[in-house]
């Protein structure tokens, strides 16, 4: 289980977010650009340090401002799928996927089969020895997912994993992505600005605006958004948010 309270002074606002994600559960952070969603991922991964708060993952404290604990990213055992994927352009698909295993000092003969299994699972075994620069958007997305999942991370962080794909690929990949995340049996956090992504991939949803959670609830609640009566805070906040913000309703 992941519990985090994160406080960080950003240039334009104070980010203050508290979240809990259970194993196999997908929390979606929904918000427009600059709402602080990606910063939450960077704080959880250790790429940024919070000013205050704590991060507890499976009963071990990764960060605590009170106790002065801060684990750097390489010691947190996380899987992070970056926006645009950040695949190493100087490496092949195989080298990208096995990078995390190499860092864990796993001998090559042991992880060869593991990499092949992942490639097969994701249907990209034919590009194993290609340079990642030669891949299509969908293939890149799968390589990024494989690279993050293969290290058996204790939490998965995904930053707009579908934005770099075209419309038809996105529709196809949403359910598939959800399946991978749920099957990993780890807490996952996915950042998106698409309401549809949130509805289909998420279990729980938190809407962020200027570093604060303005709405949170089950992904299912989003489906019946228009049925919720006017006086409900959910409706007011969400609808207003959707109609006035950059959240894509695709």
């Amino acid at each position: 289980m992941l519990y985090a309270r994160l406080v960080k002074k950003l240039r334009d606002f104070l980010l203050d977010v508290e979240l809990t994600v259970n194993p196999g559960e997908v929390l979606v952070l929904l918000g427009e650009n600059g709402s602080g969603k990606s910063t939450v991922l960077n704080l959880l991964s250790g790429l940024l340090g919070p000013d205050e708060g704590k991060i507890i993952l499976n009963n071990s404290e990764l960060f605590s401002s009170e106790k002065g604990i801060f684990f750097p990213p390489e010691e947190r055992n996380i899987g992070y799928v970056f926006q645009n994927y950040a695949l190493f352009p100087h490496m092949t698909v195989f080298e990208n996927i096995s990078f995390g295993l190499k860092m864990r000092k796993i001998p090559k003969n042991q992880f060869n089969g593991e990499v092949d299994r992942f490639l097969e699972n994701l249907g990209i075994e034919h590009v194993k020895n290609e340079r990642v620069t030669n891949l299509s958007g969908g293939q890149r997305q799968r390589v990024a997912l494989a690279r993050a999942l293969i290290v058996k991370p204790h939490m998965l962080l995904l930053d707009e994993p579908l934005t770099a794909l075209d419309q038809s690929a996105r529709d196809k990949i949403r359910l598939e992505l959800r399946e991978h995340l749920v099957n990993s049996k780890q807490p996952s956090i996915l950042v998106t600005h698409s309401l549809k992504d949130a509805k289909i991939i998420g279990d729980k949803v938190m809407m962020l605006e200027k570093g604060k959670v303005v709405w949170s609830g089950k992904a299912n609640d989003l489906k019946s958004l228009s049925n919720i009566p006017d006086e409900s805070p959910v409706h007011v906040v969400s609808e207003e948010y959707i109609s006035f913000s950059g959240i894509a309703i695709d």
Partner: peptide, 26 residues
């Protein structure tokens, strides 16, 4: 692009290994 260094860090590479395996080749 610093995102490659960030990616290496999240995959378990310390700052020095990241420098040698990612920054220098790029």
């Amino acid at each position: 692009d610093q995102v490659y260094e960030s990616a290496a860090r999240t995959l378990g590479a310390g700052p020095f290994v990241t420098f040698v395996k990612v920054t220098i080749p790029l």
